[in-house]
Design a protein around this nucleic acid. Structure first.
Length: 358
DNA sequence: AAAGCGTGGAG
DNA sequence: TCTCCAAGCTT
């Protein structure tokens, strides 16, 4: 194998990027520097989230809040509602905090270095480096899952993640060029997303195949090695969909911190590992009513547990007061609410059952 | 520093 | 159906 230096590898990758780069909504045309607001917004959304899932949200956010001052002015509830369905909702809360800091305290301008960017809410080492490199041309080393995979294969690193992170980072640093660092970062991610994929990588089409130690040793597709994951426990609970005669349903705002923080839901019981009796579940209903259980429970899988929710529905009087942290919402306004996917499943199950009952 | 934190698509 | 996992951050 002709052993190329780091500079050659970076040059080969950039040459490939110039002809193979993906056209993504947040990318500036070739040769132009991207708008920091656009880069930041896209990077916040892209944390642990696929390009395909992000694209429509990115367009919607930019159309609704064209400048960071616009987002800063919006109530956080609006941002959460627009974010609903993307997951990891702390990202949206942190993003909004950063919007206000940048708009109100920094004159609408993002810090230009990774070292300053990382101090802002929701911006960690990866996002800070990505913004600094892409928007401000700082030769920061951008290390995400793609980069870890590409580097692990390129240098045949057999140490397991997450222990191997420091080694992978330092190897990535040796590759980062002072010229076009933003394009280099995006090239690494494009390579990881389209060629050096987690399963069945297309090594025959890889611009770095001549320098890939993992390929030479026949282990590329198996890297990087990962620690086995903990199994997900099952949790159970009930959700209560109360409906008024004027077609309003009762929603509750979840606590600011923790799972689905700040998001709306039809009131639910606690979610516990053990199964509880219907009587016990109904004891946590938000209002007294003739609750009827929907036939099929809603199931949903979160990052660290499976959830099964029994769904109860009830028709309640028009003058039923909304309990603490709750409010009545017209059925027609539900699409605009900050309802996470699992809670949209609950509402769909309730509404199907109402239809089925006629 | 290990664990908590979403979702939907691919295989 | 089920597992894996995607441009990570926070505490």
């Amino acid at each position: 194998m002709a052993q190329s230096g780091a500079v050659d590898i970076a040059e080969d990758l950039l040459a490939w990027y110039d002809v193979a780069r993906r056209d993504l909504p947040w990318r500036a045309p070739p040769g132009q520097r991207a708008d920091p607001y656009h880069v930041w917004l896209s990077e916040m959304m892209l944390q642990q989230t696929t390009v395909k899932a992000v694209a429509p949200y990115y367009r919607a956010f930019l159309a609704r809040w064209p400048r960071i001052e616009d987002m800063a002015r919006a109530p956080v509830e609006d941002v959460l509602a627009a974010w609903a369905g993307l997951g990891y909702y702390a990202r949206a809360r942190n993003m909004h905090k950063t919007a206000r800091i940048v708009a109100d305290e920094l004159g609408g301008r993002f810090p230009r270095t990774a070292g300053e960017l990382v101090k802002l809410p929701g911006i960690g080492p990866y996002t800070a480096a990505a913004i600094a490199a892409i928007a401000f041309d700082e030769p920061a080393t951008v290390v995400d899952g793609n980069v870890e995979r590409v580097v692990a294969r390129l240098f045949a690193v057999r140490e397991r993640l997450p222990g191997a992170k420091p080694k992978l980072r330092s190897l990535a640093e040796t590759l980062t060029p002072r010229h076009r660092p933003g394009d280099f970062a995006q090239a690494m991610m494009d390579l990881g997303a389209t060629i050096c994929t987690p399963r069945t990588p297309a090594c025959s089409r890889c611009p770095l195949r001549a320098d890939c130690q993992g390929l030479a040793e026949g282990v590329a597709a198996t890297l990087p090695l990962r620690a086995p994951k903990a199994e997900r426990p099952q949790r159970r609970g009930a959700a209560f969909v109360a409906r008024r005669p004027d077609d309003h349903v009762l929603l509750r705002r979840r606590p600011e911190k923790g799972l689905l923080g700040g998001m709306m839901e039809p009131p639910t019981t606690e979610w516990r590992t053990e199964t509880r009796s219907e009587t016990a579940l109904l004891g946590e209903a938000p209002v007294a009513a003739d609750w009827r259980r929907v036939l099929a429970p809603v199931t949903h899988t979160f990052t660290h547990f499976h959830l099964m929710l029994d769904v109860y529905t009830a028709d309640v009087p028009a003058d039923t007061p909304a309990p603490d942290a709750c409010r009545w919402v017209a059925a027609g306004d539900l699409p605009e609410e900050a309802l996470p996917s699992v809670m949209r499943k609950v509402l769909a199950a309730a509404s199907e059952s109402l239809v089925a009952r006629g």
